[in-house]
Design a protein around this nucleic acid. Structure first.
Ligand code: FES
Ligand code: FES
Lengths: 162, 162
DNA sequence: CTGTTTTCGGATATAATATGTCCTTAATTC
DNA sequence: GAATTAAGGACATATTATATCCGAAAACAG
C-alpha cells in the first residue's frame, strides 16, 4: 500500500500557490520546473485538483493555476483525496460469505467486524489529514526553510506568474 | 492506495486459528476452503505470518498452522504489517531538493514538513490498529455471528485440525 | 523403509495500477 | 493571426498485485 508520488507533488504545488499574490496564476510549466517534475504528468495531478474545486485555472499566456479558496480553508485531506481518490484503503471482498457452513442464501446484517476495524483505522488517518490546513503547512515551511531560499523562491515564482 | 486482499485473508485466518484448541494445527488447505481462497496464494500470506513469528507451523499430515501467542498478545497491526510490510504509506522523493533557487550542494537538516504531516497520519492509522487485539476481534465475532453458524464452523474446523 | 502429506521457497505467468509521453482541441493574450 | 495555456484522450512502459507451478525437506502412517 503506497500513495502515488502525485500526492507529494500536489501538496508542494499547493504550498507554492498559497504564496501567490491575489489574482495571479502560475503555469504547469513553472510548477514542474520548480520541483523537477515531468510537466505532462504533473498536469494530470493539477487537473485533479481543479476537478475537486481546490484550484482555478485560466487559459492563454499568463494563464495557469491559483487556489480557489484561502489556504486556511483547504486541508490536507482534500488535496490528498483529489489525487488519490476517496476510496478506503481496505476493501472487504466478503470472504466470510464463502464459509461452507453457512445456510444457502444467508445474508449478513452488518459489515464484517474485521472490515469495521480496518475502516476505523482508515478514518483515523483521514481525521489527522483533515485537521491540518494548508495554511499550517505554509506557516511551518516559512519557519523552517532558510529565509534566503524562501525569498528567492518566491521571486522566481513571481517572475513567472501571469 | 489500496491494501492487498491478503490482509483480509490473514485477519480472518488468525481469527479462526484463535479458536483452535491448545496444541492443534490447521492446514492451508482447510483455511483456503473455509474462506474460498486460492490455496497456493493464501500460503504466501501464511508464510509471512510465520516469518513474523505470529504463527507456528509443523509439517506432515496433521500439520499446519497455529498461533504462536495468545490472541490477547497479538494486535491487528502485527498481522497487517506481516503481509503488507512495514513501509510507510507516504514516501518522500525529496522534490524540494530540485528547487533551482537552492545553493549548490545544500543539505536539509530536517525531513520535509509535508512528509512529517503525512507520516503523522500514517502513525495515527497504525496506532488504531495497534490498539485492537485479536482477542477483541474474536469477542466481537462470537457476539455477531449467529450462534449456529459459529458453532458449525468450529465443528468443521475441528474435523480438519491435526 | 516407503509413500503420503505438509510447509517453504523459488520461478514463472497474468492482471491491474502507477508513471510517463504524445497529440488534439479550445480558450486566452498579444 | 500567432503564441501560449489547460483539458483530456490515446498510448507506452514500469511496477506491483494476484495467482500458479514445482521441487525440497520435514513429519507422520503403515
Ligand atoms: S469478510 Fe471482508 S473483512 Fe470480513
Ligand atoms: S520534499 Fe518530499 S514531502 Fe516535501
Amino acid at each position: 500500500m503506497i500513495l502515488k508520488s502525485q500526492v507529494e507533488w500536489a501538496l508542494h504545488c499547493c504550498a507554492i500557490l498559497a504564496g501567490l499574490p491575489e489574482g495571479r496564476y502560475l503555469s504547469t510549466k513553472a510548477l514542474a520546473e520548480l520541483h523537477g517534475l515531468p510537466k505532462e504528468y504533473l498536469s494530470k495531478a493539477l487537473q485533479n485538483l481543479s476537478q475537486a474545486s481546490l484550484v482555478e485555472t485560466t487559459l492563454g499566456p499568463s494563464g495557469g493555476y491559483r487556489l480557489a479558496k484561502t489556504p486556511s480553508d483547504i486541508n490536507f485531506l482534500e488535496i490528498v483525496e483529489a489525487v488519490e481518490g476517496k476510496a478506503r484503503s481496505f476493501t472487504c471482498t466478503n470472504i466470510r460469505a464463502n464459509n461452507p457452513c453457512r445456510p444457502e442464501g444467508y445474508c449478513d446484517s452488518k459489515p464484517c467486524a474485521v472490515a469495521r476495524i480496518m475502516w476505523e483505522a482508515d478514518e483515523a488517518w483521514r481525521d489527522t489529514l483533515r485537521r491540518v490546513r494548508l495554511s499550517d503547512l505554509v506557516g511551518t515551511l516559512s519557519e523552517e526553510v532558510p529565509a534566503d531560499i524562501w525569498r528567492s523562491t518566491f521571486e522566481w515564482v513571481l517572475k513567472r506568474a501571469g
